[in-house]
Nucleic acid binder design. Sequence first.
DNA 1: CTGTTAGCGCCTTCAT
DNA 2: ATGAAGGCGCTAACAG
Lengths: 337, 337
Amino acid sequence: MEKKLPTIKEIAQRLSISISTVSRALHDHPSIGLRTRLAVKKMAAELNYEPNQTAIFFKQRKTFTIGVILPNLREEFFSSAINGIEAIALPNNYIVLIGQSHDDIENEKKILETMKKHRVDGILASISKNTTQFDHFEQMKSYDIPVVFFDRVPDVPDVHSVSCNLYHSSVEAVEFLIGKGHKIIGYMQGPPTLGIKNERLAGYYEALKKHKLPVDESLIVSTDLSTQSTEAALDLLLSKKKKPTAVLVFNDYVALDAIHYARQKKLRIDKDISFVSYANVSVTRYLDYPPIASVEQFPYDQGARATELLFKLLDSKTNRQEFPYENVVLKSELIVH
Amino acid sequence: MEKKLPTIKEIAQRLSISISTVSRALHDHPSIGLRTRLAVKKMAAELNYEPNQTAIFFKQRKTFTIGVILPNLREEFFSSAINGIEAIALPNNYIVLIGQSHDDIENEKKILETMKKHRVDGILASISKNTTQFDHFEQMKSYDIPVVFFDRVPDVPDVHSVSCNLYHSSVEAVEFLIGKGHKIIGYMQGPPTLGIKNERLAGYYEALKKHKLPVDESLIVSTDLSTQSTEAALDLLLSKKKKPTAVLVFNDYVALDAIHYARQKKLRIDKDISFVSYANVSVTRYLDYPPIASVEQFPYDQGARATELLFKLLDSKTNRQEFPYENVVLKSELIVH
DNA sequence: CTGTTAGCGCCTTCAT
DNA sequence: ATGAAGGCGCTAACAG
């Protein structure tokens, strides 16, 4: 079988002209006579000729492919980000290669390796929750493959990134709770590697301080994001003599688990205990007891901006211009449900 | 800038041997002397040599890339399918290119075109809801790019596909409702292009017939999957003098909208009206009023099986064997919540 | 065992 | 206005 697709060579032979003439004609090179050009195009059409992109990629040392590495497509946050990425990439004739780390640094390394082999032109990445060192990303520099991080960005200096500043919204979120009369407010944080910058926590402190509420470190608990761990964390909070009446939670998925569990324990949501969280995922629309408010982190925009930044880097590469490290920071927004 | 990566040529020059010897040594070709092989490998390591895959792809006419076309990554069904696809593809050294049609045939065509240009080795596709003709897929044959459809498969003969048979579960679902004492059961179907085979509807009929319940065609309504359309469809059902007490719904997303709307209208779920649907998406776990049961369609398995089938096709291509059209059908399963 | 040669499909000087 | 030739990086058939 093995159909052979037509090549410029074949066109050239049939027309008894040279390959380079065909190539030029196809590209509307000015120095080609009208009649030959037409003849070439006609023949190309007849044969259903299409340029072999892999050959062109090979020659141009460019694949028009960008690799996206993220923890998990099943999280709405990341699938929305993909939409933002595609929105910029596709019109620019780039195509998107996706790899999921499933929050495991080993997978992340493998994916990066594979993408390198496939000679992607650039990489967008949101790091896994146990990624604490970045050699594998660092290494891309020596291959001249630019990397732009988004959302989950490493807390090291020399990288490009797009992320969402959560500080102000965190202050706002806690103030929102305070405004509702809450005096004892807990904070359930995620894995230490993720919130390195700890804007959430800083905002939490700031709001308490601003309203002269005491800080009780024992009201700060952690979850590794698993349901089990979240339940344990909530148990811890509820075991205090002075139980919190509200909790600021790392993200909506965790909040859903927490709310689910609280209800199992017969707590009345928004009476006995209230939750505010991050991500603003859309399913909460169908819930009877969603977090009362959630911080929107604009995944679509983050994806789009990160892709734009990556394209700037790719340009500067071809223009041999220097390009300083850029860290785009978007504003988050508290959405009250 | 423009770093030049080391090539076998460079290794050859430094060692003053021929390019092909280097190539062979690197591939552990038996006919290469131990000392030269070692020398070559050592030099390769020193220079940080890595084969240029794009060159290899080009030569082998193979990209080790498969394209996946699906409506929307944000639907859990499809992101789960991707996981099944990756589970088979990655270990086989294939990488996955993703394109979303957003349920629009025009996008579908563009994506297909782009993937063709990128010379993907094969394609997995779940068609958009307004894809009624398949020339663009058909055309792939002339480029020798095999296509395997999954889940949303076209209802035409000569294609490869993996899908889930919904007939039996549909019967079961309706019988489940009948068992709960429901006598008037509605059916809310999706866009005509999607359920062409209409296994859901056939199952619906069959169950009614089996239990000697009358068929009332006016209890069968349609939604285009949008919230608005779903609400209108539900209104239609509720406008009957003999209102249904239960409804079989096209999928969970539609069901969520329907339930949401029913509750707005002060209907008590599972008292005044019950819902059973398809897909079994995981968020229902957090809902107070989920559909009482949902038909699991095993997206992960569908993705995995489709990928396996695609690989068989790719093999048979290189072996020049004939391969008959294959239509794998998985069993669905009614999950009671 | 190793080297030479040709070629994958296309583009691009350099000639003519 | 057109052709010839070389090369991108790698593989493989053909010679020794």
